[in-house]
Amino acid sequence: MASEEKWLIPLQLNNELVVRNPQSVVNSIVEFNQRTSEFFKTEAFLKEINEKFFSGKGTLVKYPSYDVTVKEADEKGEKSRFNRFFSVNADLSYTSLATTLLIKKSDLPLSKDESFDSLGLTVSNDVNTKDNLFEIQTYGEITFVKIRYVDRGLNYGSDCKSFYLRGMGESRFLSFPLVDPPAAEKVFQVMALGVKEILDGFAAQGYITMPEVVNPVTDTPDAPEVPETRNETQ
């Protein structure tokens, strides 16, 4: 069973390693995030939602990134002709792989707001390096964009646009210590339930239609499958 086998391949992340080789740490965490994403079939999961709810019109975007918290020392170091030396402490805060299903307003059958631009559903696998936590977060967001200025003046050229973006969204997250992961199927169930709640919320606000209900319960304990659908109403 997956739960007994410790599905989460142990990530040897400790401060000592971070200190000795930060480059390899970023790499290994990114790889780790990719493995967990494959394990939970994130892409297939989002593709399934795309087909079921959005007639396959959305696009999938994967975005790996890392985030660093910077603490600058009071005194900056020497500055030579060749290099600038700062005294900087930096914490690798987290490393993330986010996969987003993005649907443009024009591809949605109904929309109640004219400035509504797009709808995004993201599943991100994050490793919080400070607390050694793994987090799977699902968030849905509706974005409104307004182009406000066209001309920024001579210094910038006249083709530069300024935008005003407003987003509203919801997220569901689940986090646990890397050293002691829960059973994989349990993680997947909670995650799928979160997606369902978010989509229900969008449907209730009139941004999407819900033709079917996602069933968050998977049948196969070893390998999480894309949720089946069934004809039920809430």
Partner: peptide, 15 residues
């Protein structure tokens, strides 16, 4: 399960 779950909602503005 040995894990934390949570939910949040947010509004954000980029200008």
């Amino acid at each position: 399960g040995g894990f934390f779950t949570g939910k949040s909602f947010y509004r954000k503005f980029f200008i």
